[in-house]
C-alpha cells in the first residue's frame, strides 16, 4: 500500500468510532509488541487458530500488528473432527474474508483408528486428536514459533507460563526450567528443532476479552449467544444435541432451552450454560455476575487435578 494514500483510506471508521479505554489499549499494545517480536525473530511462525473467542481476538490483534501488510504467517487449525458445525462454517468465512494463509490438520492416525470422545474417553481422545495432532502439524510445517491464545487467568499452571514458552524438539514443556522473563525483553534464541509457544494474550482476563470484542466489534461464532437449542444433560453438562453422531444414553432425552457456550471446543466435551443473553452486552452483563469460571464447562480439565499441567508437559497448548 503506498504511503501517499489519503488519510481517509487508512482510517478504519468501524473500529475508530469508540476509542479503547487505557486498560484495553495497554493490553492491545502489549499483544501487538509480542506479535511483531516473534514475527521478526523466528524463521517460520504459525498461529494456532481454534475458532473460539480468544482465537478471534488473537487474529484481530495479528491483523492490527502487521497492518498495512498482510498477516505474515499461516493460521493452523488442529481439527478433531468433532467441532461444532457452526465453528467450521464461521472459520471458512473468516479465512476468505481476511485473505489468510490457512492450514487444517486432523490426526490421520486418529481418523484411521476411528478415535472418538465416546469410544476412547475425553482424556485419550484429547491426547490423540489435539496433543498428538498438534505435534504432527508443527513438525510437518517445520514451525519454530507458534502463537496461542492462552491466558494466565484461565488455569493454575498457566499462571506460571512465560509469554515465550520454550519447548524441546519433542514439544515438551518443563515448568521447572523456564527461562526467566524480565521486562518486555523476550529471549527467542533456540536451537534447530526446538520451538517457542508465544502467548500475546497472557495478561488478558475473560472480561477483557469480552469487552475488547465489544469495543472492536469482532465477529464471533453465533454459539456464544443464547438461542433456543436442543441439548441433553450428561455428567452435569449440557451437551448440544444437533450432530447425528451424538447417541442418547439410556434415560437421556433431548431437551430444548435457551442456551449458549462460554468456550467452544469439541461438541461432546463442551457444556453449555442456560442463558438469555442474545447479544454481547447481555453476555458481558451475565459474565460480570458469574461466579463460575469459564473452563468449568470443559470436561478435559476436570479429569484430574493438575491435568492441564500434565497435558501441557506433553505438548498440549
Amino acid at each position: 500500500m503506498p504511503s501517499t494514500l489519503p488519510e481517509t483510506e487508512l482510517h478504519n471508521p468501524q473500529t475508530a468510532k469508540t476509542p479503547l479505554d487505557p486498560h484495553l489499549k495497554a493490553l492491545e499494545n502489549e499483544a501487538i509488541h509480542i506479535f511483531r517480536e516473534v514475527a521478526a525473530e523466528f524463521e517460520k511462525p504459525v498461529m494456532l487458530y481454534s475458532v473460539g473467542k480468544d482465537s478471534s481476538v488473537l487474529l484481530h490483534l495479528a491483523r492490527k500488528a502487521f497492518y498495512p501488510g498482510r498477516v505474515p504467517f499461516p493460521l493452523l487449525h488442529v481439527n478433531t473432527g468433532w467441532k461444532f458445525a457452526e465453528m467450521i462454517a464461521f472459520r471458512n468465512d473468516i479465512v476468505k474474508k481476511y485473505d489468510l494463509d490457512f492450514i487444517e490438520h486432523i490426526n490421520p492416525r486418529g481418523k484411521a483408528e476411528n478415535v472418538t470422545p465416546f469410544t476412547h474417553g475425553s482424556a485419550l481422545f484429547t491426547d490423540i486428536m489435539k496433543t498428538e495432532g498438534l505435534r504432527q502439524a508443527l513438525d510437518a510445517g517445520g514451525f519454530d514459533a507458534a502463537f496461542g491464545g492462552a491466558r494466565r487467568d484461565e488455569e493454575a499452571s498457566r499462571a506460571k507460563e512465560r509469554i515465550y514458552s520454550f519447548r524441546t524438539p519433542e514439544h515438551r514443556w518443563d515448568p521447572r526450567a523456564q527461562r526467566p522473563e524480565l521486562w518486555n525483553i523476550y529471549n527467542g534464541m533456540i536451537r534447530k528443532g526446538e520451538s517457542v509457544r508465544a502467548f500475546p494474550l497472557s495478561n488478558w482476563t475473560e472480561v477483557d476479552i469480552w469487552r475488547y470484542i465489544q469495543v472492536e466489534d469482532i465477529p464471533l461464532v453465533p454459539l456464544y449467544y443464547a438461542k433456543e437449542r436442543p441439548y441433553v444433560e450428561r455428567d452435569g453438562m449440557m451437551i448440544l444435541a444437533e450432530d447425528p453422531r451424538l447417541e442418547l444414553l439410556p434415560g437421556e432425552t433431548v431437551q430444548h432451552g435457551s442456551i449458549r457456550f462460554r468456550t467452544l471446543g469439541d461438541f461432546p466435551l463442551t457444556g453449555a450454560i442456560p442463558s438469555q443473553a442474545t447479544n454481547l452486552e447481555e453476555v458481558i452483563a451475565e459474565l460480570e455476575i458469574a461466579t463460575v469460571s469459564e473452563r468449568q464447562g470443559r470436561a478435559i480439565d476436570r479429569d484430574q487435578s493438575g491435568s492441564m499441567e500434565k497435558k501441557k508437559r506433553e505438548g498440549y497448548f
Binding site: R152, D153, S157, R158, A159, K160, P175, Q178, S202, G306
Partner: peptide, 18 residues
C-alpha cells in the same frame, strides 16, 4: 499451581494473578 509446589508446599516460580 504446579504439582511440585503442591508436593513441597512452597512456591517455586513467579505466577501472575489478576
Amino acid at each position: 499451581g504446579l504439582q511440585a509446589e503442591r508436593e513441597q508446599g512452597i512456591t517455586i516460580d513467579v505466577a501472575y494473578r489478576y
